[in-house]
Computed example of a mutant assay.
Amino acid sequence: MKSLRHAVAIAVPALLAVGAATAVAVLATARRVVTPAVRRTDTHILAVDTGAQTIELDRTPDTELPGRYGLFTTGTYGYVKIGAVLSADAKVVRRKLLTQIEAGAQVDRDAAFSGWYYSSPGELHLPWESVLIGSPAGPCPAWFFPGSSDTWVIQVHGRGATRSECLRAVPVFHAMGHPTLVVSYRNDGEAPRSHGGRYALGASEWRDVDAAIGHALRHGAQRVVLMGWSMGGAIALQTAVSSGNRLRIAAIVLDSPVVDWRTVLRFQAREQGLREPIPALAMGVLENTMMARLSGAEDAIEFDRLDMVARASELEAPTLILHSDDDGFVPSDASHALAAARPDLVTMPAFSVARHTKIWNYDQTGWTAAITDWMDAQGLVPAAS
Rank of each mutant, 00 (worst) to 15 (best):
G233T: 08
I301V: 13
D108M: 04
A21I: 13
A251V: 10
I55H: 04
G379D: 09
R246G: 06
P257Q: 02
L4D: 15
M375F: 04
G83P: 14
R270I: 01
A216S: 05
D58Q: 01
G273R: 09
G177C: 08
V131M: 13
E316C: 09
P127C: 02
S119A: 07
F303Q: 10
P171C: 08
S385F: 10
A334M: 12
W143P: 07
V18K: 06
V285I: 12
A251D: 06
V224E: 07
R31N: 11
V258M: 02
T239K: 04
P257E: 03
A339Y: 04
A251W: 02
F145W: 15
L281W: 05
A112G: 05
D363L: 06
L380A: 12
M231D: 09
P141N: 12
A280S: 07
D62H: 00
L254F: 11
G138V: 00
P139Q: 13
T29R: 14
A23H: 00
I301K: 10
T29M: 15
T162L: 09
I45N: 15
N187Q: 03
H336P: 00
F329W: 14
I278W: 14
A269L: 08
R59G: 12
V107Y: 06
R186V: 11
R186K: 09
L65S: 06
T357C: 11
A90K: 11
A282T: 08
H215M: 10
V93R: 00
V264R: 02
E287A: 03
M348V: 02
R270N: 10
L126H: 05
E165D: 11
R305N: 12
E123Y: 09
L217K: 04
A111E: 01
S3H: 14
L181V: 02
R266P: 03
W116I: 02
V92F: 04
L98G: 05
D325R: 11
G51N: 03
H174S: 15
E123S: 13
I235A: 08
T151H: 06
A354W: 10
P349V: 02
N288E: 15
T60M: 04
L247E: 14
T319N: 09
R109C: 00
G202P: 14
W360L: 14
E314L: 12
W261H: 11
L27R: 14
F145K: 15
T54F: 04
R198C: 02
F144S: 11
H125F: 15
L97M: 06
E190H: 08
N245L: 03
N361R: 05
M290Q: 02
L46G: 05
A292S: 13
F267R: 04
E56M: 13
K358Q: 11
A175N: 13
L294W: 09
N361I: 05
Y117Q: 14
R109E: 12
L124W: 04
A21C: 13
Y199N: 14
R355I: 12
R275G: 10
A137H: 01
Q238E: 15
P146S: 08
P257G: 00
A350G: 00
G122Q: 07
V131H: 13
M231I: 03
V330R: 14
D304W: 13
G104I: 10
Q155M: 09
P141R: 08
